[in-house]
Structures are given as C-alpha cells and as structure tokens.
C-alpha cells in the first residue's frame, strides 16, 4: 500500500468535517475521491499533507506514519499536491514555478548558490532539464518564459500539475484538476494523468467531472457529509444506491448539466 488512511476524524470548532474515514491506495493506482461539495474531500488532502493536523486517526505513507510531519517534510517524503483554487507563484515565470517544485530534490544553499560551485551548476542544470521535460509532458513548453498569472486557466491547472511533478512524487494529489476546463482540455488532462500513471506515480484525484472520474479511476471512495459512503470500482460506485441518492439529493442540477 502506498497510502493508508486510518480512521481520520477532523473537527473544526464544533463542526465535524471528516468522521472516521479510512481507505488505502495501492501502488500505481489512480484513486478517485468524490462527493458533493462540502463532503470533506479537500479537508482530506489537508490531512494527508498535514496542512492541518487531524483530530484523531493516522495516515501512513509507504508503511511510515506521517501524521504530525511538517508539510514540507511530507513533500520531501514523496507526496505532492495541487490546489483547488489555483495557487501558483503568480509573478514567477512558468519555468521558475516548476523549478520551485524541484526544491526538495535539490540541496544547494546560500554559498554554493552565490559562488556557483560546480555541484550547484550541475544541480541547476539537472533541475532545468527535468523542468523542461515536465513542461513538455504537460504541453507548456512554449510558455516556459511566460509569467504564470498570464496563462489561460486550463494552462494554469496544468502548470500546477507540472510543479507538483517536479518534486518527483510517488503519490500525486490532484484537487479538481478539470475544474473550469473545456472538453478538449479535459481530454488532454485525461491523457496527462494516464501518462503520469505510466511513470509509476500513484494518483489520488478529487474531481467533479464524473465521466472523467469513471474513465480514469481504478477505484473510488465516495464521501458525504464527512463520512465514507461507499468504496469500489467505477462500476460498483455507479450502481451503488446510496451514492445515487446522495448525488440526486444534493447535486441533481449538477448531474443533469
């Protein structure tokens, strides 16, 4: 198992955002985390990356307990995320954004950086080569010198994925990567995530675009009001009565659209 979520509960003040949620992800899987708005999906990402600590429960990554680690250390271990509300370094260039993604995979400090030692130059070169290769993968090569905030919306989403990939993760957390994308962009995204899978990277995906989720994911967990409602393959989920009711009940409009 790459990631094991064991009985995670999170309370904010008196409100319970997650209640006793457990699931685990196998290596190389594309795992879906779906549910109506406010079901606790992004909170789960915040638990995994420890942006907030869980109230109870624990998370293990590659058989190591990571609950309580600082977020940067978790990234260093090999988990990297994207954000639902895009959080790029907006005034940096596209390439620079990806280079920051490579932060944990490099180590030069103040003096080697200023003196440009041999090791530092080699490291920068390696970071650049990797970054360009990743930009190629996500299809942003031609924009490498553009300022991030000037990119189109769909491109910004892809840049977030590129930046996360630059940290060389074993587990990639994608928070609604298809939000705001048109059909062509979504199709590109499908291929991108598949290519990421071919590289041996495990993906945990939050997404509202159901056709995309059903085509992409190997297994899915459905959350509703912070509780696990169902888990299974896309077929099992699509035929699950409780899931259908939860979606029809709260997001019927969304589904028909």
């Amino acid at each position: 198992m790459v990631l094991k979520i064991n009985n995670i509960t999170k309370n904010f003040g008196g409100i319970s955002a997650l209640t006793d949620v457990s699931f685990s992800i196998k290596e190389g899987e594309i795992y879906g985390l779906i549910g109506p708005n406010g079901a606790g999906k992004t909170t789960m990402f915040n638990m995994i990356t420890n942006m907030f600590p869980p109230t109870s429960g624990e998370i293990t990554f590659l058989d190591e307990k990571i609950t309580g680690f600082k977020p940067h250390k978790i990234t260093n271990k090999g988990i990297c995320r994207t954000f639902q509300n895009i959080r790029l370094f907006s005034q940096m260039t596209v390439l620079e954004n990806v280079l920051v993604g490579g932060h944990t995979r490099s180590k030069s400090g103040v003096f080697s950086g200023v003196l440009r030692t041999k090791g530092q130059r080699a490291e920068e070169e390696r970071l650049r080569v990797t970054a360009k290769e990743i930009l190629e993968l996500v299809g942003l090569s031609e924009f490498e010198d553009a300022i991030a905030e000037n990119l189109a919306y769909g491109q910004q989403r892809r840049l977030e994925i590129a930046r996360a990939l630059a940290s060389d993760p074993k587990l990639l957390l994608l928070d609604e990567p298809a939000a705001g994308m048109n059909d062509t962009e979504t199709a590109d995204l499908y291929h991108l995530i598949k290519k990421v899978q071919e590289r041996g990277i495990t993906t945990l995906l939050i997404e509202h675009d159901m056709p995309l989720v059903m085509r992409l994911c190997d297994r899915i967990t459905v959350l509703n009001f912070g509780k696990k409602l169902a888990e299974g393959t896309p077929e099992e989920i699509q035929n699950n009565q409780a899931v259908i009711e939860a979606y029809l009940g709260s997001e019927g409009d969304d589904e028909s659209a």
């Binding site: 977020p71 990234t75 260093n76 790029l88 370094f89 005034q91 920051v100 932060h103 930046r163």
Partner: peptide, 12 residues
C-alpha cells in the same frame, strides 16, 4: 508569493 503553496512544494 504564496506561503502555503511554497510549503506544499517542500520549502521549509
């Protein structure tokens, strides 16, 4: 530019 994002990218 974005402290949270920097942290998520592994910056201490």
């Amino acid at each position: 530019m974005d402290e949270k994002a920097a942290e998520a990218m592994g910056v201490n």
